[in-house]
C-alpha cells in the first residue's frame, strides 16, 4: 500500500466520486465542488504565468520587444494588451460599449482567417476525397464506392423538398441506415472511451494506491 499522501488523497477523492454510482451523497458533492474550485484557481495561475507574464510583462520589462524587427515592436506588444484591457469595460454600464471594439477585432480576425480555410478543409478537400474514380481492383476501391453511396444517400435523406417515396424514398432509407451505422460506430467508440477511463482509475487504485498488482 502506498505511503505517499498525494496518492492517498487522489484515491480518497476517486472513491468519493465513485460513490455517486450508489446514490447522490455529500462526499460526492464536496469533491465535485472541490474539483470546480481547484480547476478555476489552477486555470488562473497558468494564464497569469504562461500568458500574461511570459508574453507581455516579461518582454515589456526586459525590453524584449526590441527583438521584433522595425519600429512596430513596442506597438505590437502594447496594442493587443490595450485592446484586452478594454474588454473589462463591460463591467461598467457607462463604458460597456467600448468592449465592442476588441470583440469586433477578435471576431473580424477570427472569421477572416477561418472562412477560406474552413471552405478548403471541410468542403473542398472532403469533396475531392469523395469524388475518386470507382474501380474494382482492390478492397479500397470497394470502400470508395461505399463512401460515394453513403454521401449521396445521406444527402437524399436530408433533402426534404421532395416526398420520400419510390426510388427517392428507397435512397433515403439507405441513407438513414448508413447514418445509423455511423452513429453506432461513434457510440461504440464512446463506450470504449468511457471504459478506458474506468480502467485507468481502477489501475490507479489497485496499482498505485493498494499495490495489489505490479
Amino acid at each position: 500500500m502506498s505511503t505517499d499522501p498525494g496518492i492517498w488523497l487522489a484515491a480518497i477523492l476517486t472513491l468519493c466520486i465513485f460513490s455517486f454510482l450508489y446514490k447522490d451523497n455529500p462526499f460526492y458533492k464536496f469533491v465535485e465542488h472541490l474539483s470546480v474550485g481547484v480547476s478555476a484557481g489552477y486555470w488562473l495561475v497558468i494564464i497569469i504565468r504562461q500568458s500574461l507574464k511570459q508574453t507581455f510583462l516579461d518582454p515589456l520589462i526586459q525590453g524584449q520587444w526590441q527583438l521584433v524587427p522595425g519600429k512596430l515592436g513596442i506597438f505590437l506588444l502594447i496594442f493587443p494588451a490595450f485592446m484586452g484591457i478594454l474588454l473589462f469595460t463591460r463591467f461598467s454600464n457607462k463604458w460597456a460599449y467600448i468592449a465592442r471594439y476588441p470583440i469586433a477585432m477578435l471576431w473580424g480576425i477570427g472569421v477572416g482567417a477561418s472562412i477560406p480555410l474552413s471552405l478548403q478543409n471541410y468542403i473542398i478537400r472532403q469533396l475531392q476525397a469523395t469524388m475518386v474514380p470507382i474501380t474494382f481492383n482492390s478492397w479500397e476501391d470497394v470502400g470508395s464506392l461505399f463512401i460515394a453511396i453513403g454521401v449521396i444517400t445521406g444527402l437524399v435523406y436530408f433533402y426534404f423538398s421532395k416526398e420520400h417515396k419510390g426510388a427517392f424514398g428507397g435512397a433515403a432509407k439507405v441513407g438513414i441506415w448508413i447514418l445509423m451505422i455511423g452513429f453506432g460506430s461513434t457510440f461504440g467508440f464512446t463506450v470504449m472511451a468511457r471504459v478506458s477511463l474506468l480502467i485507468g482509475r481502477v489501475i490507479f487504485l489497485m496499482k498505485d494506491w493498494l499495490g495489489i498488482i505490479s
Binding site: A129, T186, F189, T190, M192, A193, S196
Partner: peptide
C-alpha cells in the same frame, strides 16, 4: 485522440489531410 473523438476524424485520413490516427486506448 480519445476513442470518443476517433470516429469523427477518420474523414481527414480518407482525404489525406492526416497521415494516421492513434485512436484511444486501443
Amino acid at each position: 485522440v480519445t476513442a470518443v473523438m476517433a470516429a469523427d476524424y477518420y474523414h481527414y485520413l480518407n482525404s489525406g489531410q492526416i497521415v494516421g490516427i492513434i485512436g484511444g486506448l486501443k
